[in-house]
Amino acid sequence: METTIFGHRGIPEKYVENSLDGFQYLAEHGEAVEFDVQLTKDNQPVIMHDEKIDRTTNGQGYIKDFTLNELQMFELQVDSKRPGQSKPKHPLIPTLFEVLDIFKDTDIFMNIEIKTDNIYYPGIEQITLDAVAAAGLEDQVLFSSFDLPTIEKLKALDPTKSIALIIRDVIENPIEFMKAHELVAFHLKKTILDGQHLDIERPWTINTTEEMRKIIEAGYVGLFTDDFEKAMLIRDELK
């Protein structure tokens, strides 16, 4: 089994996380991508990991408290902890529609995380499903969430969708749990890997050469990394 390499929020080692620049680069050089969806005050789906814009932009506050037009007053900022990051040419917080448009006419596999583990956005599941369908990318998308009720809502809206549960802690009887909730995989924190369920586990976030080699050599079905190019090189070397 070849490990699929997911660019975690694009490629933060080179471009600001969850930026159009990073997604465009991945569309041209990668094979799979992960990004996070949240809703603005006026129910527009935008791509950002944190519920607040403080860490990654020049603004402050919760995404849910701004309309899309208000959010576009702020710009994404280079992460001072990542000296290799380029200043974004497209500095505005991207919408889901803009990101999906980048991946049209590509074979990039997308993991869309519905970001509801801390704040629940009413209607986010249907909004996201509709956007993916309108873009004609349904066959290239896997949905995921930390929040089990969100996963149940997605399944109720469309039982055909592939969905993974993101987990930080060990789950007892994972195979039975997966079947009971109709999941296709677990996306799990690297510290709880057990080496027994390679075909249903994708660990995060795998960034060191040593970690990448270990995961790829073991044959895990996928991994999430901030530097997909390094991971793909290691996978090629191991072949």
Rank of each mutant, 00 (worst) to 15 (best):
R9D: 02
P12L: 12
D158L: 00
D139R: 11
K104H: 04
K87A: 13
Y121H: 13
K14W: 09
E152A: 08
H197E: 07
I47R: 05
P83S: 13
P45E: 13
K214F: 15
N43F: 09
I114C: 03
G30L: 06
A131Y: 08
L165K: 11
H90R: 14
Q196D: 10
D54E: 11
E75V: 11
A180M: 14
T208K: 09
T40C: 10
T56K: 06
E31T: 11
L92K: 09
L142V: 14
P122W: 15
M73C: 06
E31A: 04
Q126H: 10
I114R: 00
I124L: 04
F109R: 09
M232N: 02
I216K: 01
W204R: 01
T56S: 03
L71F: 12
E70F: 04
H49A: 09
N111C: 05
D139A: 12
D79F: 11
D117T: 13
V141Y: 06
A32G: 03
T208S: 14
E210R: 12
P94K: 05
D139G: 10
K214R: 14
A133K: 12
P203D: 12
N58Y: 08
F186L: 03
Y220T: 02
V46D: 04
P203L: 13
L157A: 11
V16C: 02
N58A: 04
E210S: 14
D42Q: 06
Y220G: 01
A134W: 04
K87R: 11
M48R: 07
I127H: 03
V33M: 02
I200F: 12
I114M: 06
Q72V: 04
H197W: 10
P83H: 13
R55P: 04
T225I: 09
E201V: 15
S86P: 00
K14G: 01
